[in-house]
Design a binder for these strands. Structure first.
Lengths: 231, 231
DNA sequence: GAGTGGTCTAGACCACTCA
DNA sequence: GAGTGGTCTAGACCACTCG
């Protein structure tokens, strides 16, 4: 899957940081030391470290060394909210129907977003979230197996995937994309939308320190859902 | 400044794309060709191209080639940005068609959002923003007359309403709501959307220190526009 | 089989920092 | 001067696609 040498080194460093093996601000091994440790050439180590720096996991200072970065200031730009919490906050009842839960081969677009090869094994869940029994969100989620090995064994009627993943792989950063899309027939049926009703789709990718954890497609009925924000 | 070989190559390709030297979807020169053209090693070309791919400027397909990526029109979820700036930042040309500019009586829903009585006088503008001649945003804006008395006298082909309002009534806070809606026939015609193409609608209210300045409905073609955000 | 991108090697030179 | 990261070279092997 993700087993080329530079990725092995990246993961090793990232997990070491996540595990607290190195404290914030502390110096990491030099490139030369990693060359010896992993028995690779310096270009390979360099690429791993450069990418970690791009991801703001480490900070590199020419002539000095590489250091564990201070964790990104988590300002409340766009908070990531749990659908169950949101519904509860409105004083309504949340329920969930688990429609699909399995390991699957990554489709081409998902593989590209995940940075893995097509047909790599991912965990997949399709869950319909209802508010007072009315469909509000169809959640289709792809999860990196090695970052949440027990993902398929949870009972998502009791805990949402987002809540579970937050526990086993705390999120470091995320990214969403919001689109307006017409649903296909499956989605229309599940969300019980009218003909000619669009869907608001949020595609959300979340990273823990160890890498990309999950890609979620959240489909909402256009007539019954809006995203709001203040600034 | 930024004159190392891989950066020179990056800039060369990026500018070529911006200048239309290669069309969207078109194949770019292979790494081997670039090696000859720039007289560098393949690792150097590879780094340039890999970074362009990370920046979503090009798409690379192993065994096939590198191609100019479809320029995903994207806009920030949280920050409020001027549509003209956004388009310019992508290296494209912004233009605007002023469709309507007048004082009108507030419709019921707008009056409610503004906190004024129905049929109160508001300024109204309807402007179509185009990216390289293609419609990207239909802006329908209601403005409080006493907070921007000269609103109707501006030339919105030269300055966007948002830019003008930012000058005369600096925004203190704002609020948006994002929805997926099917356009009506007027909107379909103006935005040149396909049948069965939804619109992503942002309704944005902005306040200056003196009160609610403006309510804007921003309609975007669903197939050509997405909002993005990071956290 | 020819062409493509993905990755790696084993060196190298440079500018920089620190003691 | 010893150590660091930034960058580059001139090859190489691989998996993949396409005709």
């Amino acid at each position: 899957m993700t087993d080329s040498p530079y990725q092995v080194i990246k993961r090793s460093i990232a997990q070491g940081i996540a595990a607290g093996q190195w404290q914030v601000g502390q110096a990491l091994p030099s490139e030369h030391a990693l060359v010896r440790q992993f028995s690779v050439s310096r270009m390979t180590v360099n690429r791993a470290m450069r990418e970690l720096a791009n991801e703001n996991l480490i900070r590199r200072v020419p002539g000095v060394g590489s250091f564990v970065a201070v964790p990104a200031a988590q300002s409340a730009l766009v908070e990531i909210r749990d659908i169950a919490d949101e519904i509860a906050a409105r004083g309504h009842a949340h329920s969930a129907r688990i429609l699909h839960l399995a390991r699957i081969g990554a489709p081409a677009d998902v593989a590209a977003a995940f940075g893995v090869s097509v047909a790599s094994i991912l965990y997949f869940s399709r869950i319909l979230h209802l508010e007072d029994g009315v469909p509000l969100q169809l959640e289709q989620r792809y999860v990196a197996p090695h970052l949440a090995p027990a993902y398929l064994d949870q009972d998502y009627a009791l805990i949402t995937p987002h809540a579970y993943l937050s526990r086993v792989a705390p999120l470091r950063e995320g990214e969403h994309q919001v689109r307006a899309v017409m649903p296909d027939s499956l989605q229309t049926r599940l969300l019980q939308t009218e003909v000619d009703e669009a869907c608001l789709v949020v595609v959300r990718r979340t990273w823990s320190n160890a890498g990309l954890v999950s890609l979620a497609e959240l489909w909402h009925p256009g007539a019954r859902f809006a995203l709001t924000g203040k600034f």
